[in-house]
Design a protein around this nucleic acid. Structure first.
Lengths: 205, 205
DNA sequence: TTCGTCATGTAATGGGTTACATGATTAC
DNA sequence: GTAATCATGTAACCCATTACATGACGAA
């Protein structure tokens, strides 16, 4: 998931690690970002795998094997997505197994790079996500119906709020799907961005 | 967090592991539960630490040291919370460091056992959680304001939906806090609760 | 010159998962 | 008798975090 997000960002422009982390925070929800302890090892792996390249050669390769661990600064390193990987990126996004939407994080990352994704693939991912969230909703609903009376006020409140949240997510996804379908129907013509009538006032039960 | 939830459940009634897992699913959001690979090791640790006890002695203790790993069924094992720990449970809940509300999961577990928690502690935890979520909201708002125009429709939608979600959570917490304060005022007799003007109608931004 | 921010990285650790392995009990 | 479900547990792994370590560069 992290590697996926990195590829997505480098698809737009080359960057060095520090900058990457800041951008990542944006994509992953504006809240907390990934730590360096995850980021740099990931970049290392990806460079080794040939997914990305750097403007500078691997400094480790130049050193004798028994050199000290080489910590500290070695100059700013700009990472670039490999040309072949960049071309194949839309295929990677198109891998629409359950992993694409079962986990909310993975789904979010995919959504963030939807502009590099074919319309039909977008639709598949959105619908998969909706199915997943709907299943969650049914589970919560059943649980609430079964246990109502038996639970204390706080647990009940927690579940009620959770149910409302997933409910809202389903509606949100439905709107995205509608928009997507409408535009797919218009088929390549003028891409007049339609204003989605989102934001019905929350009917607080 | 897991250990905390286990203690909370065993505080209500003794249970065996399998049952514990089902109840845990309820507490942790009705969706997916913890796996056995987490649950049983946790129970083992907690028994070793003297937090909980079983109706049967540790079967490993009876076996010679070179015995095979003892896999498979050995009878249903009922876990009970230790008397001292049960009495001190409210103290544990009262540990209101940032860890109690910074992580949504921990907060949820604490909320689920609020009935074993003193009113003032409940209030501290709820207010701490609200501060955390409000900070998140500000972060998201700033990010949205800063980048608006520059981001594509999907990323924008993602952030907009995220912002609405945290916004709803803040309002939800405010309601819980109001109720809590109102009841604290009534129960305490003389202690007049300062009229909190927090239930503003949902001004969906 | 010293402090804050930018910048890169490793090591130890943590908290969880999946896959595996086994067996009791119940319903058909 | 056999299949589904109940029930307990280990081992290998995954992905992330925190703590640590280093150093360049610009501004006060």
């Amino acid at each position: 998931m992290l590697e996926f997000a990195i590829l997505g960002l480098l698809h737009q422009t080359p960057m060095h690690g520090y900058e990457l982390r800041k951008q990542l925070a944006q994509v992953l929800g504006g809240l907390r970002s990934i730590s360096y302890g995850s980021l740099y090892p990931a970049l290392k792996r990806m460079r080794a795998a040939g997914l990305i390249s750097t403007d500078e050669p691997d400094p480790h390769a130049l050193l004798p094997a028994d050199a000290p661990p080489l910590t500290g600064r070695r100059g700013k390193i700009v990472y670039t997505i490999t040309a072949e990987v960049k071309e194949r990126f839309h295929e990677l996004v198109g891998q629409t197994g359950p992993e694409a939407y079962d986990d909310g994080g993975s789904f979010g990352v995919r959504l963030a790079f939807f502009r590099h994704t074919a319309s039909d693939v977008r639709l598949r991912i959105l619908e998969g996500r909706r199915r997943t969230v709907e299943r969650q909703r049914e589970g919560l609903r059943a649980s609430l119906g079964r246990t109502r009376e038996r639970l204390d006020r706080y647990t009940l409140e927690l579940q009620r709020h959770g149910l409302e949240s997933v409910d809202r997510e389903v509606r949100w996804l439905s709107e995205l799907i509608d928009t997507e379908r409408r535009e797919a129907g218009e088929a390549g013509g003028s891409s007049t961005s339609p204003s989605p009538a989102a934001g019905e006032p929350p009917t607080t039960t």
